[in-house]
Simulated scan of single mutants.
Amino acid sequence: MSWHPDEAYDDAALQREEAAEVLTPEAVITRLKLAVTDAGSQAEFARRAGTSRSRVCEVLSGRRPPGDAILAALGARRAIVGRQA
């Protein structure tokens, strides 16, 4: 949800907000595995995503977190999530 500086939250504005799904690291890996399968290989997924096959392999093995190119190819993005007090 967006922050509206004038505190003008109306129903129409709230209906336009994009819904977000919070993914666990495990869910991102699962999505990556499916995307690699759909692409036919790690190399083909990497080519389409604009990254290297070795980076895809490192992410799948848990040695490195996914970078922006992999996240974008999965339809995801990095976010900062705060805890409620």
Rank of each mutant, 00 (worst) to 15 (best):
M1R: 13
M1T: 13
M1P: 15
W3P: 00
H4G: 00
H4K: 13
P5G: 12
P5I: 11
D6V: 04
D6L: 13
E7R: 13
E7T: 04
A8S: 11
D10S: 07
A12M: 07
A13H: 10
L14Y: 07
L14F: 10
Q15W: 02
R16G: 04
E17G: 04
E17M: 14
E18M: 08
A19E: 13
A20M: 08
E21M: 04
V22E: 12
V22L: 15
T24H: 10
P25D: 14
E26W: 05
A27Q: 15
A27K: 14
V28H: 07
T30N: 11
R31C: 04
R31K: 15
R31A: 07
L32M: 09
L32D: 12
L32W: 06
K33L: 12
L34Q: 15
L34F: 02
L34D: 15
L34K: 13
A35S: 12
V36T: 05
V36C: 10
D38V: 01
G40A: 04
G40S: 07
G40W: 05
Q42A: 06
Q42H: 03
A43L: 01
A43K: 02
E44G: 00
R48K: 15
R48L: 03
G50E: 01
T51F: 00
S52R: 02
R53H: 01
R55L: 15
R55C: 01
V56R: 03
V56F: 01
V56K: 03
C57T: 13
C57I: 01
V59R: 04
L60A: 05
L60H: 04
L60C: 08
S61H: 05
S61Y: 01
R64F: 03
P65V: 01
P65M: 11
P65W: 10
P65D: 14
P66Y: 04
P66T: 01
P66E: 05
P66R: 08
G67T: 05
A69F: 00
A69G: 00
I70G: 05
L71K: 07
L71I: 04
A72P: 00
A73M: 03
L74S: 07
G75D: 08
A76V: 07
A76E: 08
R78H: 10
R78V: 03
A79P: 10
I80M: 09
I80E: 12
V81K: 12
R83G: 08
Q84C: 02
Q84S: 09
Q84I: 11
A85I: 12
A85V: 14
